[in-house]
């Protein structure tokens, strides 16, 4: 963790210096945007961390089973689009009925979207790294079509849907702040995934298949294809639920750019946490703070917010290089 912080600080300082920005002002904006006020924490950092936690768990669970699902972005979009479509339709129902329906629909949509890649893998041996990535682009295009076609708002001026009725809004936790129920829900899910992996037989099979397909089938008699297929569905459901949470808790409508690449950041979130579900809570918070701070830095100091993406990429490279060095060290 100390190494990570060092990487972040070095990367941020390096980019600011090379770009010729007003470094002290930019750093102050970064800090204030993430932690500088109650508003920064409750309406920016934690709100940004929420979708990252859902998709981080999605990627983490898949990677633990050796399923290289890098399609959390597409599964999140499928979840968000379906949640909005269902939300517009059931908006008249009481919240206690409507909201669970909307969230459930989002999770199912994410599972189906991941299930396509799972089916292609089991039936035709298509590598999931490729199929899930391609399905991300398909999902982006489908969202573009939906908001200019069947789901476009009635005046047909803006490429977006109508706003969801308040009955299908995720309740906020603290009056006057954007922090919503999705955050504690994601925390509960993180603990659940951890408990599942460490304390249940099905979770143990997931870990076994992820560690060694040969040993799982030869010594344990585990049906590895079935385990991987189920993990595909569960992983997609987590990402889809993240999309539904974002649509009902933050955006309240579907439009292009509803996700600034949460599904890709999720890979960094999961890898940095070494795929440990409880550690994913911490890394999601870290990345949430980074993205909230970067947004503030763009507003207040004119530093492009892609800085956050650069830092995330450096962290992934750092983690991979570190792991590589560690495994080489073990062999030597």
């Amino acid at each position: 963790m100390a190494a990570t912080v060092a990487v972040i600080v070095a990367a941020v300082l390096g980019i600011l210096a090379v770009g010729g920005y007003d470094t002290p002002r930019a750093l102050a904006a970064l800090w204030n945007g993430a932690f500088g006020s109650t508003y920064a924490v409750l309406s920016a950092t934690l709100v940004r961390a929420t979708p990252l936690l859902f998709v981080g768990l999605s990627v983490g669970l898949a990677f633990r089973a050796g399923v290289l699902n890098i399609g959390a972005e597409g599964q999140l979009l499928a979840g968000a689009a379906t949640a909005v479509a269902v939300g517009l339709w059931v908006g008249g129902l009481p919240p206690l009925v409507a909201l669970p329906m909307v969230l459930g629909a989002g999770a199912i949509a994410g599972a189906i979207w991941a299930g396509i890649a799972g089916f292609l893998k089991v039936r035709f041996g298509v590598l999931e790294v490729i199929s899930t990535l391609m399905l991300n682009f398909v999902a982006t295009s489908v969202v573009s079509w939906l908001i200019r076609g069947p789901l476009q708002e009635p005046t047909r001026i803006y490429p977006q849907t109508l706003e969801l009725a308040p009955s299908v809004h995720m309740p906020t936790l603290i009056a006057g702040h954007r922090l919503h129920l999705g955050f504690p829900l994601a925390i509960v899910l993180a603990v659940t995934v951890w408990w599942f992996l460490t304390h249940t037989a099905a979770g143990f099979r997931v870990r076994v298949v992820g560690a060694s397909v040969r040993a799982a089938s030869s010594a344990g008699g585990v049906n590895t294809a079935r385990t991987a297929a189920l993990v595909f569905l569960a992983s997609g459901a987590l990402a889809g639920l993240g999309g539904a949470s974002e649509a009902t808790g933050v955006t309240f409508a579907l439009y292009e750019g509803i996700s600034p690449g949460y599904g890709y950041s999720a890979i960094a979130v999961a890898l940095l946490a070494r795929l440990h579900p409880l550690a994913i809570i911490l890394t999601a918070l870290l990345f949430g703070a980074l993205e909230a701070g970067a947004a503030a830095m763009q507003r207040d100091a004119n530093v492009p917010s892609v800085l956050a993406a650069v830092v995330e990429a450096l962290i992934v490279l750092g983690v991979l290089a570190f792991n590589h060095a560690r495994t080489r060290g073990q062999r030597a």
Partner: peptide, 25 residues
């Protein structure tokens, strides 16, 4: 084919009938 190096002895014992287990570990 028989063990997973990075797992503990206990986990490798559990591996033996991983397929048939249900519920909690």
């Amino acid at each position: 084919d028989a063990v997973i190096e990075e797992f503990t002895l206990t986990e490798n014992v559990a591996l033996r009938d991983a397929a048939g287990r249900t519920g909690r570990m």
